[in-house]
């Protein structure tokens, strides 16, 4: 067993995968020599050579577009977008090609690539360094969207993403890259894409969260459990394809539902989750399903960021309202 933080677990996942499969190519801005601005690819160029791990030109459209070609021609590219806020120059390649190549060629050409990107706020950063854009990708047919919240899951999901036959948007919670360490197996293992995880079982309320928000929700849940409530906490892990079954089964048991996310509220992932609950567990509900989210503004610069994102106290207050409805 290794003891790794989330970013080390990702580096290890890439390392172990590259050792086992020479078709894996890793690149992006500053990814090669320095190992990425967060050091996710640290040491890979030295170990596997410049052909397999390199600094791309500064152009996201090129990073993803070239990856599509590589994937079609037998490689497994794992590319990095330095921050998710800078994915927009590549959106054309992602949405109009990566997501559609399989359908367009009726399965003749496919794009088994992974597009990694650190996402989320709370890191006191400049503009465009704090967004949570999972809904944009999840709304696009042909893409899978994965967000780990622990080192163990990060490695297992990354290995699953690399071996997935379709393009996977792999969103990394940078706020908790180095927040804590966990035991991680040394070798190869996969966590299936599309499966949520019950972090802890409970009877009175189902709460779904993912990524860095999960840690804040855990704190809120602890506070409420001390007050005598029993809460089932689910880590969604895959945004798309979403694990309807785990959510519906849980809400059928608890009768109450809340989703907490860092993404903006309107048309966000919470809206989809509440629809799933309404479709699958409506007659079990004892309170209106609730979403606890950021507001529908532009992500503020650091001096205003606390107005934007749900705080632990805010989450506690809103969950309590659901529990006592």
């Amino acid at each position: 067993m290794l003891v790794l933080n989330l970013i080390e677990a990702l580096t290890n996942a890439l390392d172990v995968s590259m050792a086992a499969d020479s078709s894996i190519i890793v690149y992006g801005e500053d990814v090669g020599f320095e190992g990425g601005v967060f050091r996710a690819t640290k040491g890979l160029q030295a170990k596997y050579g410049v052909d397999r791990c390199f600094d791309s030109i500064l152009a996201e459209s090129s990073i993803v577009g070239s990856g599509i070609g590589m994937a079609i021609n037998g490689l497994k590219p794992v590319v990095e977008i330095q921050f998710s806020g800078f994915v927009f120059p590549a959106i054309n390649q992602i949405v109009t090609h990566a997501a559609r190549m399989r359908n367009r060629s009726r399965g003749l050409y496919t794009v088994p690539m992974v597009i990694r990107m650190p996402y989320g706020g709370g890191v006191r950063a400049l503009e465009h360094h704090s967004e949570s854009l999972e809904a944009i990708f999840a709304h696009t047919a042909g893409l899978k969207v994965v967000i780990p919240s622990t080192p163990y899951d990060a490695k297992g999901l990354m290995m699953a993403a690399i071996n997935d036959p379709d393009p996977v948007i792999f969103m990394e919670p940078k706020r908790i890259y180095r927040a804590f360490k966990q035991e991680v197996p040394e070798g190869i293992y996969e966590i299936p894409i599309g499966k949520a995880k019950i972090v802890k079982p409970g009877d009175d309320l189902t709460v779904v969260a993912w990524g860095s928000m999960l840690r804040d929700v855990q704190k809120a849940v602890e506070i409420l459990e001390k007050e005598g409530h029993s809460i089932e906490l689910i880590d969604l892990r895959t945004i798309s394809p979403i694990d309807r079954e785990t959510i519906i089964t849980s809400v059928q048991k608890t009768g109450r539902f809340a989703v907490v996310h860092e993404a903006a509220r309107s048309f966000g992932p919470g809206a989809e989750l509440i629809s799933i609950v309404n479709e699958g567990a409506f007659l079990h509900l004892e309170a209106p399903p609730t979403r606890i989210t950021s507001v529908d503004t532009i992500v503020p610069l650091p001096k205003g960021e606390h107005h934007y994102v749900p705080s632990v106290e805010g989450i506690v207050a809103e969950l309590r309202a659901v529990l006592t409805f």
């Binding site: 309107s266 507001v295 503004t297 532009i298 205003g304 606390h306 107005h307």
Partner: peptide
Amino acid sequence: GFTPLEDIFDYVYAERTPILEAQYQSR
């Protein structure tokens, strides 16, 4: 110090939309 709450909401559009107004009031 910190950015006033109003500032987050007041420059998204020329006028606050009903949803933004509700979110502002709730915060």
